[in-house]
Simulated assay, not measured.
Amino acid sequence: MAKILLIEDEPTIRDEVLDWLQFEGYEALGAPNGRLGLELIQREHPDLILCDIAMPEMDGHEVLLEVRASMRFSTIPFVFLTASADREAIRKGMDMGADDYLTKPFSHTELLNTVRSRLRKKEIQEEQMHNRLQMLAAALAEEREQRLLKSRLVAMFSHDFRNPLTAIMASAELLEDILRDQANLDDHKQTYLNRIFGSVYILTQMLDEVMVVAEMEGGQIACLPQMIDMASFVEKLIEEFRLIDRHAHRFNISNNLPDHLEVDPRLLRHILANLISNALKYSPAGSTVRLDLFLRDDQICIEVQDQGMGIPAASMPHIFEPFHRAENAQHLKGTGLGLSIVKECVTAHNGQIEVQGAINGGTMFRVALPLVPISI
């Protein structure tokens, strides 16, 4: 029996939702505010948390920050309940690590569908982790080659690094909000906060790449499409790069994709992040990086164009090989893994990637991913 905690300060809503959950066979617990909710989380360790955003004593964002900062509770699915479709509050919550949200008033069916979906997703993630542990145990027992074993160990331990990074990011965002509310956020403080945001992004990207490399070596990269808000997805990614790049380059963004598409967000992020990162790395300051996204012939097309140093003809056949670095890029920092990761992610999505460019003439990468019909 799954244990669900509802943190809601309105007694009528709290009692009604608890009745719904209990009728469906769940063990339902209720708390009237965030402080008491945290005490229940620590004592009961629920399987899922439903939490109102606007509450006295401690609001939903603060509860989420505490939950995601804890090693014990960071993987518990967290669903926000909000009285209005406040996109800013919702986006802030999702950026801090919330898994979903429900807008009040919601129906009995909407609530149960969300609960079942999130519990099922948690179950799948736990099964995947269990399978990875079993695979690691088998690798140890059979004394598989050290490189594969090391990659899987690194991939598993990288999960433990992600939670502190999430806590750092959420704390910095909370500090930024406090300083802004107090009219004490000057350019000097914002610069240091931006450095925190940029550094956390870089470390998170490195962890993600470690995971992908481990999956590449184990032949385990899978494409799991889900419906995402493409405009928000692209906007957030570009804002992260603006923080890291500190406005050294200009961005020319053209997004003509539908508002919602079914793609694998993890694979898409690796594709876009690595291509944009390379475009910035190999382009002179002040130049423009162009990103075009559009549909053509039932395919999602992505083009990333820079005005950088270009790729020598001799390197063209090898650019997607792990650790390969073009002769004219040897003086720049890098692992040589980015494009091999992009290639694997595109292949897992049953897509194609091609490159055009010449020395000192810039480079353009073109990715085409098959369009997945939206589930109804």
Rank of each mutant, 00 (worst) to 15 (best):
F157M: 11
L295E: 13
I76E: 04
K343R: 12
M135I: 11
M230N: 00
F294H: 10
Y192T: 04
L224P: 00
L237T: 11
S70T: 10
M230V: 11
L136S: 09
A85D: 15
N274G: 04
V355E: 13
F251G: 04
T109L: 13
P77G: 03
P284S: 11
A139M: 15
R325I: 15
E62V: 03
G308F: 10
I13E: 03
V367N: 14
M230K: 00
S199P: 01
I228D: 02
Q128L: 11
K281Q: 12
H247W: 10
D187F: 00
G93H: 12
K92H: 07
R43V: 09
G310H: 04
G25I: 10
G357V: 09
S375F: 10
E354S: 10
H249L: 06
E239A: 07
K333E: 15
I244Y: 06
V234H: 02
V367L: 13
S171A: 10
Q307M: 04
D186A: 00
I353V: 15
I124G: 01
D59I: 08
Y101L: 06
L175F: 11
A368I: 06
G198P: 02
Q128M: 09
P370H: 12
I353D: 08
R116K: 14
L102P: 10
E145R: 15
Y192K: 09
R144V: 08
P11N: 04
G310T: 08
A141R: 10
S117W: 08
L371D: 03
C345K: 08
D208H: 14
F78R: 05
E110Y: 05
S232W: 13
T191M: 07
H159W: 06
R91P: 00
I244G: 03
V67T: 07
V115R: 14
A172R: 00
P56D: 10
G308H: 05
V154R: 09
G37L: 01
M94A: 02
I196S: 05
D297S: 13
V234S: 08
K122L: 08
L140N: 05
C51D: 09
S70C: 10
I4D: 00
H159M: 05
L149A: 05
F80C: 09
R152D: 14
L48Q: 08
Y101C: 06
I4G: 03
I196P: 06
H270L: 15
D292E: 08
D297G: 03
A183L: 11
R43N: 14
T75R: 15
M96V: 01
E217A: 14
I374Y: 01
L18K: 15
W20V: 08
L136P: 04
V342Y: 02
H188E: 14
L295Y: 00
Y26K: 04
R120G: 05
T75L: 11
D264Q: 05
G334T: 05
P370D: 06
P373V: 11
G334D: 12
A222C: 01
A231R: 15
L153Y: 15
S287E: 06
N255P: 04
G336V: 02
A314F: 01
E145K: 15
S74Y: 12
F323Q: 09
R68K: 15
F233H: 13
